[in-house]
Design a protein around this nucleic acid. Structure first.
Lengths: 144, 144
DNA sequence: CCTGAATATTTCATGCTGTCAAGTAACGGG
DNA sequence: CCCGTTACTTGACAGCATGAAATATTCAGG
């Protein structure tokens, strides 16, 4: 299993992935900032724009403590982008859902992110297919 | 230029890259935590293990304010992993350099990161070459 | 040589993210 | 009905990040 970990080719690919990660992260933060959001706020808003979630559900997706989510949703709520609604099935639960404005912001954010990720245009359709398959295999082998 | 931004294949690849970024970042933080370091501290220590840098140089590499670097280096210095040395050529400058222990920690950190990135082993050598070339093309087109 | 603009670093104030521990409210099985 | 569990919040604390102001040093021009 360790046979391929040290060879120059693997190290080069690892290096490239590191570069992609750094660039992606930076552009994500910048895109969020353009909408006066922090990265964490943008991630939560993006999650909620797919479906409303209980606070605990957000924490699970973000892999952080629920007490942390309280603050992030507080700030989004204070800006009118998100609202807390009671869960009819369980009065302990609060469902966070985007407001109309929150949904609009999430959409604009997503669009500006797509644009930031434009470098894929440098590849032909066939190349993108190859890339997709290789990335899938990379991710598929990992347990998670 | 926008011709390829919306098609399902591109979106799928973007999604995959997002997954890789999330996983990479998470594993980086965990690897740092295993050495009782934060992500930012691990990044700085990794930089300095390549070459000593002035505070401002670290800030440039991290793309953050110099005043932020002061605190990060403070904490690394308090742990004996880094030391500040005067720059003989310019008395305004302080060079941050890893101590012996800092270098050792950086090495162990790098090794544990290589292990975290093991999923590449799922690909054959030829596939890794293809992946390398595609990633290079993706990155090469961007202005930086 | 001296002055003034520019540079390197630090300090301070502030805000956000993250953790942990403790507290409150509600669910649900026995 | 009670008790353990679960969901959420609060408060204390640390770290990261920014911006403005203070200090020390460099360097160019007169």
């Amino acid at each position: 299993m360790a046979t391929s970990r040290r060879d120059p080719l693997t190290l080069e690919v690892v290096e490239l992935i590191g570069t992609i990660v750094a660039r992606y992260y930076e552009e994500y933060e910048q895109a969020a900032a353009r909408h006066a959001l922090t990265g964490a706020q943008a991630r939560v808003l993006g999650l909620l724009s797919l479906e409303p979630l209980p606070m605990r559900g957000i924490a699970r997706k973000l892999k952080c403590e629920p007490s942390n989510v309280t603050g992030i949703v507080d700030r989004l709520e204070a800006r009118g982008l998100v609202e807390r609604r009671p869960d009819p099935a369980d009065r302990r639960v609060k469902l966070a859902a985007p407001t109309e404005e929150g949904r609009a912001t999430a959409t604009r954010l997503r669009d500006s992110l797509d644009f930031a990720r434009e470098p894929l245009a440098a590849l032909s359709e066939e190349e993108r297919e190859t890339l997709r398959d290789l990335l899938k295999r990379m991710l598929g082998e990992s347990p998670l």
